[in-house]
Structures are given as C-alpha cells and as structure tokens.
Computed example of a mutant assay.
Amino acid sequence: MESAGEQAPGVVLHDYLSKLQQYSGRDTILYATNWMTDEPHTPNEALITNGDLYGFMRMMRDLKTKKLDLILHSPGGSAESAESIVTYLHAKYDDIRVIIPYAAMSAASMLACASNSLVMGKHSSIGPADPQFIFPTKIGMQIMSAQLLIDELQEVQVVSEKHPGRLGAWLPLLGQYPPGLVQKCISSQKLAEVLVQKWLEDHMFAGESDAAEKSKKISGMLASPGKYYSHGRYISREECRGIGLKITDLEADQEFQDLTLSVSHAADILSQFTPINKIIANHLGNSVISKPST
C-alpha cells in the first residue's frame, strides 16, 4: 500500500476531503485558486467567473445532505458570478458553512458573507468588497477602485464648473475613460453593498431582530474603500468579529482543523505538481480543474 507521501497529489486531496466529510457529516466542496504564487494568471483563469457555476453544478451531483461545508480560497472576481453561485447553493442547501483556511478576497469575501456560519483560523483573512475596474490606458492595463474613479471624475466636474479654463489639463486623462464609466462604477458599488447586505440578513443573521441594521452596517464597511484604504488589505478574524461578523474559530476543534488544513495543503501540493489555476472538488472524488491557457 502507498503511503500518503507516495500517492498522487490528487488522490491525497480527495482522501482528505472524504475524511473531512466523514468527520463533519456534511457535504464538502473545495473551491481553491492557485493565486498566492509568482505564476502569471489572466483574469479569467484566476478569478470567480460564470463558468464556476457549471463546476459547482457538477460537484453537486450525488450529494445527499442539506448541509454544506465550502472550503474557500480565492482572490475574488465577478460579483455577478458570485451571486449566481450563492443563489444556486442556497437553493440546494439549508445550511452553508464557509471555511477559510487562508484568504477569501473581494467577491470571494462577498461569497463568504453569504454563509450561515463562517469558520476562520488565526491566520485567515477576508478582504474589502469594493468593486475594481480593469481598463486599457496608454501605459497598459490598469486596475482602479470604482469609488476612486467616481471621486476623480467628480473632481473633474467640479473643476470644470468652477474653472472652465483648467479643463484642458484633464483631457488626456478623460480620454482614457469609456463613456458611462461613472454610472457603471456607481451601479457596481451599489450592487456589492446590496448583495452583501441581503446575504447577511437572509443567512448569517436570519431571524435576529436587528438583522437588517447589522447587515447594512457591515456591508457598508466592506464595500467602501474609505474603511480599509486598499482593496488588497487582509481583514483578520478578529477584525471580522470587530465589524460584527459571526465567526467560529477553526482551532476550536483540533481534528476538524487538522483535516481542513490537510485539504488545503493537499490542494497546494497538487498545484505544484500540476499546472492548475483553479480547482472545484467534492468529497466523492469528483473535481473540475482549470489549467493555464497555452
């Protein structure tokens, strides 16, 4: 018989997923992206996209319980795609527990806020949910916060109204932005806030008398760049508690922690031996893997 170290990395991963499911008694799915490396990724390869819903649908085949553990490790992506995943999962499950072994950022942090309960370790983080825009400029592709774009373009408007002669200095900048950008930024900002507020109210704080108030407060902080100043900031477990999220400590159950981190480590090892951008896998041994485009 092969030892765990001699087995193929994918076999080891599914073995730990199976053991975790046997321990918890809940359906178990891993959604992990190979993004904490120096390897380059195109946006579609690294981020949450519409195609991920298909992956989740494949992983749901033959799963039997009404409770799900979702192990989540992702830099984020499309809020609309995250919404489709959340809608689908909650249509299938009465209780969803999201486990963050390392980090769930941006739209992945929004997805985490759609859980009934959130499990984090001392080392775990989520990130701000303020929308980002990627657009071409004369110096290459640029990523900028929707709110910062709104603020900059509103500043241009104020300057043009008060000092029309200065508008010419802004024209090279304005020429890089497509028409309707401000309204698109405003809509995206509002969407992120509304989705997080709704998911928290419907799931994490369901049935609580102050659910609406708490959900609105938390969603406003996560969707605003003014709270954390950078979209890439890591929000720790204690900070998550501080803003009002309900968190269960991963360390509270040693065996559960060991099995969860073993799943995460096995996924990391698999990505080292196989070119993987993203993997969605369940405890039955099924998986959907996204590989780098050639």
Rank of each mutant, 00 (worst) to 15 (best):
E83P: 10
I143T: 11
A91L: 14
R61W: 04
N116S: 08
M120G: 00
S125K: 03
K66D: 13
K92E: 06
S78P: 03
L118E: 09
L111M: 15
S125F: 09
F135P: 06
S115D: 02
T37S: 14
G140C: 08
I99P: 02
S125M: 06
I96G: 09
A91C: 15
I150L: 00
S125T: 15
G51A: 09
H41M: 14
Y93W: 01
S81M: 04
L148Y: 15
R61F: 01
L89F: 05
I96P: 08
E45G: 11
L70K: 02
L153V: 14
Y54I: 00
P128L: 04
L72A: 01
I139N: 10
A82N: 05
M110S: 07
P75H: 07
I48A: 14
G55R: 10
I100M: 13
N50T: 06
M105F: 06
F133L: 15
N34C: 02
A114F: 15
P128F: 04
A107T: 01
E152M: 12
G77W: 12
P101S: 05
D62P: 01
A91E: 15
E152N: 05
N50C: 02
D95S: 10
S84I: 12
Y54S: 08
S125H: 14
L111R: 08
M36A: 05
F56D: 01
P131V: 04
E45M: 11
K92M: 13
Y54E: 12
L111I: 12
I96W: 07
G127D: 04
S117V: 12
M144G: 10
I100K: 13
G121Y: 04
I134S: 12
S74L: 02
M60S: 09
I85N: 06
V98Q: 02
I126A: 12
V119K: 01
Y54R: 12
F133I: 11
G121P: 11
I85H: 13
M36D: 11
S124W: 01
L149M: 15
P40L: 08
S84Y: 11
F135V: 03
I29P: 01
V119E: 03
L63S: 05
T28K: 03
